[in-house]
């Protein structure tokens, strides 16, 4: 089996890298793939919490790389019964205790056994970023429609190109369709124009993402969550399936339609 090693990165913190990793990993596993997710955020591990596997951790990534345990021992199986495994980060160490070569070797080993190796990259562009990016062959870039996140994403694209990862694909997370409609939030086209990369998916802002993360169940398992549906579509695209980009602006409900008809709908485009 020759798997694909993909790093999920952003530059800026708090844009949803870990959430995206957990959800894309889960969604790929739900599609019947064998997936392993690696938390490379050593010292600030989170992925285990989001996936609800916190209290099953015995060994971690650093133990594996230092040869203190077998690879198999550090892999925690997801509780939903899919072929999804987590290699958690060490919490008591820091990013300097591993190097990109070690991680690359590990990923090469995992690629033989799995379809997808997803790496959750830490925020920033320091050693932790270099470790994760050095080991990956592809990259998924997560950003939110905020100027600061986009600036950092732009910087990260440059750094990815420098480490020979070309054409990263972009996920725009936490889009508020209403704000975009009012012209108060950058929309997809603005961001794509600036960053000049391919879009992998759009994820709407959704309270269910937060509650799901707090419960330790990735939101893709929530059938009614729009963000979960968005991550399922993203996973399908990662998997090579052609899925149309869904317009998040679509309003539903009789009331909204009615307001639109009688002109109460506030549509203030900035260029109008």
């Amino acid at each position: 089996m020759t798997g694909r090693t993909i790093v999920i990165t952003s530059g800026k913190g708090g844009v949803g890298k870990t959430t995206a990793t957990a959800n894309i990993g889960s969604a790929l596993a739900m599609r019947g793939k064998k997936v392993v997710v690696i938390d490379t955020d050593i010292g600030l591990r989170n992925l285990d919490v989001i996936m609800g596997l916190e209290n099953r951790i015995v060994y971690d990534l650093v133990n594996v790389l230092e040869g203190k345990c077998k690879l198999r021992q550090a892999m925690i199986k997801d509780k939903h019964g899919y072929e999804l495994y987590l290699i958690p980060a060490a919490q008591t160490r820091d990013k300097d205790c591993i190097d990109p070569d070690q991680l690359r070797d590990l990923c090469a080993k995992l690629e033989d056994q799995f379809d997808y190796v997803l790496m959750d990259c830490p925020a920033g562009i320091e050693q932790g970023f270099k470790n994760a990016v050095g080991a990956a062959r592809e990259a998924i870039l997560v950003t939110t429609p905020e100027v600061s996140a986009i600036r950092d994403a732009d910087r990260v694209i440059g750094l990815l190109e420098a480490s020979e990862i070309h054409r990263p694909r972009l996920i725009i997370n936490r889009i508020h369709p209403d704000l975009v409609k009012q012209g108060n939030m950058m929309d997809k086209d603005d961001i794509v124009e600036l960053l000049a990369v391919d879009i992998l998916g759009l994820v709407p802002a959704d309270e269910r993402t937060i509650t799901a993360a707090n419960r330790g169940v990735p939101v893709v398992h929530d059938k009614r969550a729009p963000s979960g549906a968005a991550f399922l579509r993203i996973a399908a695209r990662v998997d090579g399936e052609e899925v149309q980009l869904v317009d998040l602006d679509e309003r539903s409900g009789v009331f909204a339609k009615l307001k639109e008809i009688i002109g109460l709908d506030r549509r203030a485009y900035s260029h109008a």
Binding site: R151, D154, R155, I157, G158, L159, E161, L194, A196
Partner: peptide
């Protein structure tokens, strides 16, 4: 022949032609 991205510096003794954008930063 590329977009100049945030954090990148291009220095040259002669003229510079960029086929792409010069992004903020």
């Amino acid at each position: 022949k590329a977009t100049c991205r945030s954090g990148e510096t291009i220095r040259h003794e002669g003229d510079v032609v960029v086929l792409g954008d010069v992004n903020p930063g």
